[in-house]
Design a protein around this nucleic acid. Structure first.
Lengths: 335, 335
DNA sequence: GTGAAAGCGCTAACAC
DNA sequence: GTGTTAGCGCTTTCAC
């Protein structure tokens, strides 16, 4: 790697002159600036990032901790984060917690030693289940800006980007109700997560608010993605009067559709189905699933914007929770 | 952040003593070592990564450039890379080229300035189509170790991790032939990519080698994922004697299955289907798709192992191409 | 208009 | 057994 020193030697000037020249300082003569810049170009000089980081105590790098990159939702958020970070001149350094509390703690510690300027993360499932948060407080006490997305915890004093899970589910349910559905079942594979709980609440409230709906709320918690298909099938076999489905995670909506088709249930005539996200499987079903779009990419971008803003201003800005709007996208599985 | 200097002041010793004590140097008395380590623990001292990087000219960070994180195959490779890197004490700094040549060049330049010790990457589609490779040579000339995976180019002198695409397709095709299929069609959405070309060659060779197979090779190139479904449907409507399908990308296999089922073709009795990868959609079809497993996670881990090995030894080791074995996993869409 | 020197946090060769 | 010093590559204050 070519350094300022090498340029200085070649040009018979001092290192500081070279540095100033490259930064276009008014102190340096146009003549010298020109000579320096030309040589720098020719020798393909690039300032050493580590030296800059050390000097400025800024890394221009964002630490991102994602619970599960194989989950399409998180992949999309990461996509948004990377795009916006690059746009703003930041690198991202990515760690995967794989839903493990320990790995999350390690990643946080690993990065909090001068590797990054701040964090963007979603809590691991285990962290949410165990209701841990001290490790985040440690980071915040060290004055690292932090933005949480999707899986958040109100007790942690940091900025947050979430979708309005309650209303998203409320509106989706209301749509089913307005279609005249009489027995609407909610399917969830994420009842341990904050977002899952909120979506269930939204569903329940919608049913209660809709005069004329008489059935009780009906929540089916599926266990794993492998068994989900069977569990949903069993539900359909037991209860033959279900006419509305709200799948609040990535996969249950699609699975409901597959199961309905296998049983020759006419979707959407005799049964309406709405899922969350899962856009990666859209091309594979017919009719295409109606979904609540979570705007994952926008969420990632928003998180970066908030973080970079915090990074720029010195004094502590008040923290806030930002809502990304959702859209109910009606495709083929609803009327 | 607490520094060596702060510890030194508190203990009334010099910075170097603290440094040596923390590294357990034999020069320092047990007594002092104990005092230093205790205070360091208490004050939660962590060595500054940037300073270490600058000092050692090593970052312990790997630059990863992925063409498309929303592609499940690449997400899995990234998963493997992250896991193994963490295991070996390395960070990864991730850039997404989004299949763009320019973005790939930028990412490379952006990271080659002291941010990373080496690279792991797969070429962007555009880079493969344009047959560009000078930007990689530039990096290699700077003595950065580099490992390419999946999408590689023989003309680039670096280590490579690939699957044996030719034989993977050859074996899958041979399986269909042994089932007695008489008209086997290959579906591809990746005919521009090196891996796509190799897979087509494997398919063609298998047909030729199998005595008694009379039909000509039949390759359908689909245009986009959105139109693929229609294009495959049109094929099925035109040619009613197709009894074998090899989908060599992420999605065409599943789409063939969906289309076959819509036309009441009995899979696998009257038509066999084999796809590549696409494990994320497996839970959604019935029967489940038989696939060539690409061992994406293993590929990622292997790439990290090779790179870290290069990083450790000083002298230049000979480059080689490593093959990750594939497995033909028969599920429900083959006999 | 240019250069010398200090310092970001750390390590290591070399005193003492 | 401990301290001094120089230096990794860079910026910036202060001299000249």
């Amino acid at each position: 790697m070519v350094t300022l020193k090498q340029l200085a030697e070649q040009l018979n000037v001092s290192v500081s002159t070279v540095s100033k020249a490259l930064n276009g300082s008014y102190e340096i003569s146009d003549e010298t600036i020109k000579r320096v810049k030309e040589l720098a170009d020719m020798m393909n000089y690039r300032p050493n990032k580590m030296a800059l980081s050390l000097k400025h105590s800024k890394t221009f790098t964002i630490g991102v901790i994602v619970p599960d990159i194989l989950n399409h939702f998180f992949a999309k958020v990461l996509y948004g984060i990377e795009q916006e970070a690059t746009e703003l001149g930041y690198n991202i350094i990515t760690c995967l917690s794989n839903e493990s509390f320990d790995k999350e703690v390690n990643s946080l510690e690993f990065l909090a030693n001068g590797s990054v300027d701040g964090f963007i993360l979603a809590m691991a499932e285990e962290t949410q289940v165990l209701e841990k948060s001290e490790h985040f407080d440690t980071i915040l006490n060290q004055k690292f800006p932090m933005v949480m997305f999707d899986r958040v915890n109100d007790s942690i004093a940091c900025d947050k980007v979430i979708i309005d899970d309650f209303n998203a589910a409320y509106n989706a349910t209301t749509h089913l109700l307005k279609e005249g559905r009489r027995k609407i079942v909610l399917l969830t594979g994420i009842d341990e997560l904050s977002v899952g709980k909120l979506r269930v609440k939204g569903y329940e409230k919608a049913l209660k608010d809709f005069s004329g709906y008489t059935a009780e709320p009906f929540v089916l918690k599926v266990n794993t993605i492998e068994t989900a298909n069977t569990e949903i099938g069993a539900l359909f076999d037991e209860e033959d009067d279900i006419d509305g489905i709200l799948g609040i995670d990535n996969s249950t909506g699609v699975m409901a559709l597959i199961n309905a088709q296998k049983r020759n249930i006419n979707v959407p005539k005799d049964m309406s189905i709405i899922g969350f996200s899962a856009s990666n499987v859209l091309p594979f079903t017919d009719p295409k699933l109606s979904t609540v779009s979570q705007n994952a990419i926008k969420m990632g971008k928003k998180a970066v914007n908030i973080l970079v803003e915090k990074l720029k201003v010195e004094e502590e800005a008040p923290i806030k929770t930002h809502m990304v709007e959702t859209k109910l996208i009606l495709r083929g599985t609803t009327l």
